[in-house]
Design a protein around this nucleic acid. Structure first.
Lengths: 227, 227
DNA sequence: CTCCTATACAAGTAGATACTTGTATTCCAA
DNA sequence: TTGGAATACAAGTATCTACTTGTATAGGAG
């Protein structure tokens, strides 16, 4: 796989036959690129990452395979572009939750879970991209940052309720909450519409029931010490 | 892909050049088949299902690729044979838990989780086989049965504590417990040895904290009605 | 022994699919 | 208007890997 070929100005033959990251885009090109991303999202959503072929993406977008490679160096780059987009968008949505800080712990965590579930329902292809696709380093970082935002949200809320909780313990509980979320999300993405509401409720229960004892046990400890 | 070719008795050329499920094995053949399965397990464990090539399995076993196809019709069959073996073995181990029925709810569920975690640690390749590999119908059934054994174990224990709980609710909670288990297991399989004990504890906490309120809330309800 | 069959492998084939080549066409800035 | 750059695609190629072919050897039942 040749990612791209530099064509230096002093080079005789300057026409670009492979992807060139420095290439200028005109309006048509920008639209094509967006259309290709939309098409890729649709096909990834239908078939999953591995089953999706670049030819299928090109066909879905109504262009030839060669055209696709004018805009993306390879299949991974398409998945990475989408995954990065979604990861940043989702992280932003999480950061916007309760910016005034008026929600209770349970309300805030419930809202976090709802936001994440809605996002995954709105973009079903996100799941396969994050789970199955080999992403570029930069996309992997965006994905990792997204996870960190989730973890930090919960850690911050835990420490707001219980300032004596160490940062590392708070982060640990955030991470476990994320694992629980992902475990149930895996099923949610393949669940029948009929089964979904119950699972969504189970998701909230599972995460909150894991987290609240972290606060409760400590209150109990305080009560004991105060007695 | 040609799974096998029937060589009928009245056929002139009876030599078998592809896999034949009816073929008799001698001692050497049985050993080769086991060695191939062991080799496959090792490579699947190192590389995951998709990255593993049949050539790599043959090389690991020290045989030619052609020899491998004397014993298995295709790559999927190797994964399926392993997955079936493991799924049955694991289900058996789960069914053996607390056969005398002396453990408390929390002890029994804790034991279930320990058994499952140990098994996955002992056979790291099981995870990729179950998650990534396209299995044969029969292996898929074994996998599904394994999941059901986990769910039923928890459902039975829930109903033993709380006979008024409906079968379908009990099964639902068992399923959610399984999702939580899988979510944390995903991380456990890639966690550093240093991080593992804490995660194992988190696993027990997460599942038990999800399940115990099912019993507690109902006791609370009963207490209210009795007041 | 002797014949049939199981075992073994060197050296392939076949099919899928990510990606390229060469060239024609459109756009737009100067 | 015109030339260079961007867009577009028909028709490929290259590679990977699951799987076969043909043939040679070992082993056990009779």
């Amino acid at each position: 796989m040749q990612v791209f070929t530099y064509m230096f100005p002093f080079c005789e033959n300057r026409h670009v036959t492979v992807f060139d990251p420095t290439r200028k885009r005109n309006a048509r090109g920008e639209q094509r690129q967006q259309a290709l991303l939309r098409a890729a999202a649709a096909v990834f959503g239908r078939l999953g990452y591995h089953q999706t072929t670049t030819n299928a993406i090109a066909a879905e977008a109504g262009v030839s395979p060669a055209t696709l490679y004018q805009f993306f160096p390879n299949k991974e780059a398409i998945a990475s572009a989408l995954a990065s987009m979604y990861a940043r968008e989702m992280a932003e949505a999480e950061l916007a939750i309760d910016s005034e800080g008026v929600l209770s712990f349970a309300e805030a965590v419930g809202e976090l879970i709802d936001v994440c579930m809605s996002f995954n329902r709105k973009h079903p292809e996100f799941h396969t991209l994050v789970v199955d696709a080999p992403l570029s380093p930069s996309a992997r970082e965006d994905k990792q940052v997204l996870g960190q935002v989730f973890v930090d949200f919960i850690a911050a809320r835990l420490r707001r309720e219980l300032p004596t909780l160490s940062r590392s313990d708070a982060a640990h509980h955030g991470q476990v909450a994320l694992m629980i979320f992902r475990g149930i999300l895996d099923e949610l993405t393949i669940a029948s519409p009929h089964a979904r509401p119950r699972l969504q409720q189970a998701m909230r229960n599972a995460v909150l029931r894991y987290l609240t004892p972290v606060l409760e046990e400590s209150k109990a400890g305080r009560a004991l010490r105060n007695a």
